[in-house]
Design a binder for these strands. Sequence first.
RNA 1: GUGAGUGUAGCUCAGUUGGUUAGAGCAUCGGGUUGUGGUUCCGAGGGUCGUGGGUUCGAUUCCCAUCAUUCACCCCA
Length: 405
Amino acid sequence: MIQSLRGMKDLLADESERYIYFVENCSKIAKNYGFSYVETPILEETALFKRSVGESSDIVGKEMYQFTDKGGNDVCMRPEGTAGVVRAFIQKKYDKAKVQKKFFYYGPMFRYERPQKGRLREFHQFGVESFNQPNIKEDAAIILMLKEILEFFGIGYKLELNSLGCTACMPPYKENLVNFLKNEDEICDDCKRRRDTNPIRVLDCKNQNCQDIYANAPLLLDNLCPTCRDEFEQLKNILDDFDVNYTVNPKLVRGLDYYNKTAFEFVSDDIGAQSAIAGGGRYDKLVEYLDGKPTTGIGFAMGIERLMELIVMPEPKRKGYYVGALCDEALDISFKLATKMRKNKITTINYDKKSLKAHLKNADKQNAKYCVCIGEDELQKDLLWIKDLETKEEKSITQEELLGR
RNA sequence: GUGAGUGUAGCUCAGUUGGUUAGAGCAUCGGGUUGUGGUUCCGAGGGUCGUGGGUUCGAUUCCCAUCAUUCACCCCA
C-alpha cells in the first residue's frame, strides 16, 4: 500500500471541516482590519529564503525541501510565508510606488524535520503582512487582531513581547554581547556556534547551564536607542489600554533573521512541547535585502494545525434532505426528484430500496433534517412522505410543494 | 540528526509463560412478521497479529533487521 510521506497528512472529514472553519473566520477578521488575500507559489528560488530567512537559521540551513528542477534552477518548497509575499510585493513594484499594502495568506509550508506533536513536514500557516506602515499603532493593531482571532476561537494563550532594536541600536549591542560571550567558556556547543553565526539566538538557548550564565548577559532592551525605546513604551501603553495581557521577555528572539524592533510570540500550554501558536514582528529591512526600495513591514504567522487542536467547533446542526425509495418502482422517480432538489437544497439519496425504518435510520445517521420517502402509497396518490427528524412532524406533500420550499 | 515507546478487525484495545478454530467494545450489514430514526435485543461479515529474516518440531508471542507511527531533544508556527 502506498502511504502518504512521513510528516504529511491528508486533511479530511472532521479535520477538513475544522480547517475550512478556521481559515474562513480568520480571513473574515483579517478583512475587517483591511487585509486582502494573496496567494504566492509554493515553489520559489532557493536564494529567496537564503537571503530573507537567513542562512544561519536552521530552517534554511537544514530543513528545506530543496532540489534542482529540470531547467537546472535551484528551487525549494517554501518553509514559511513572508518571503514569498515580500517577493511578490517587490515584483509588483509596490515598493517603488510607495503604497501601503496589507495582505493575508494561508496554505501549506514545508520543513524537513522529525515529526512530533504539533510539528509536521507539511503544515499550514495563516499569516498577514503589512507594508509601508511604520506607525507603532500598526504593531498594536496586528497584535490586537491576533488576540481577536484567538478569542473568537476560544483559545487560551500567553503573549510574550520584546523589541529587537533597529540598525542604530542592534549592531553595537551585538558586539557587546559577543564580547560577553567570548569570556564564557562554559556555554554549550550550540551557543558557541551561534556566537559566530547569530549571537542573539544564544539568549533563547534551552540549556539551563547556559541560561544561568546569561542571567548576567547584557540585554538589548536595556540598550535600545531612544527611538526604539520610545516606540516600545508606546506599544505597551496601547496594549494596556486595550487590556491585552502580555509579559515582556527580553530574551525572546525570533528564529528568522529578518526581524527587527517589535517581536512577539503567542504560546499555549495545552498542546505539548511545540507550544508556539503564533509569532511575528517587524521587518523593516527585509524589502531592501530582497533588492526592493526601503519599505517597512510587519506581520505574523499562525500554525494552523497547532491551533486546530485547540478550537471548539460549534455543534453540528441537522441539515438537508435524505431521499429514499420503499419499492422498486420508486427508485428512478426518487433519483429524478433528488436531482431536482439539488438545485437549491442539500440532498443525499439512497439508491437502494429499503424499509422505512432503514431509511429513517440512515437519514438520522447522516444528520439530515428531513427524510423524504416514496413508496406504493405515495406513487398511487402522486405525493411524497416527508418527516422532520427534529420535530418528528410528518406529512404528505406534492413534488411541487417540496421543490418550492 | 539523537533518544525512548508503540505496531493484533474500519476504530480503541485485550490476549497468547511459544502449541489446534486469535477475542471484546464501538462501527458496518441483516433481523425482532404488514411502512416510523436517534434506546434495546438477537445474529452476521471482517484479521496472512506492520514487513523480512533467524531460533524452534512449531512463532502473532523470543531474537535481529527494516519500515511506519508516537512522544521528547533540537528547531519553530
